[in-house]
Amino acid sequence: MNTYYNPDDLAKFSTMGEEASALWDAFMAYYGPVMADGALTAREKALIALAISHSEMCPYCIDSYTQTLLSMGVDEEEMTEAIHVAAAMKAGITLVHGVQMKNVVDKLEQ
C-alpha cells in the first residue's frame, strides 16, 4: 500500500457492518433520515456536510459530498462558499481561544 487513503476504499465503507451489523444498521438508520429533507433541505444539509468534510479533512467525504452536490445541481461557487464558512469558523475558533492565552498571561505576568 502506497498511501493510507485509497479512493476505492470508499466503496468498502459498508464492510464496517461485517463484525457489528446491529451497530452499522443503527448508524445507517440514523444517518439516512438526518441527511434527508426536513426543516433543512437535503441540499442545505449536504452543503453543511461538505463544509464539515473539509474542516475534518476527510478525503472520502469530500469526494462523496462533492459528487452528491453536483448531482443536486449545486455549483462550484456555492460549494466554495460553504468551505469558506468552515475555514472562517476554524480561523475564528483558533482566534477566540487566544482569550485563554490572554487569561493565562494576565494571571501570571506581574
Partner: peptide, 19 residues
C-alpha cells in the same frame, strides 16, 4: 432542458424546475 455540466447525474427534476 437541463443537463449536467459533467460526469455526474442531474438533480431531482421538480426541485430543479422550482429553482
Amino acid at each position: 432542458v437541463y443537463n449536467p455540466s459533467g460526469a455526474f447525474f442531474p438533480p431531482d427534476q421538480t426541485t430543479m424546475e422550482n429553482e
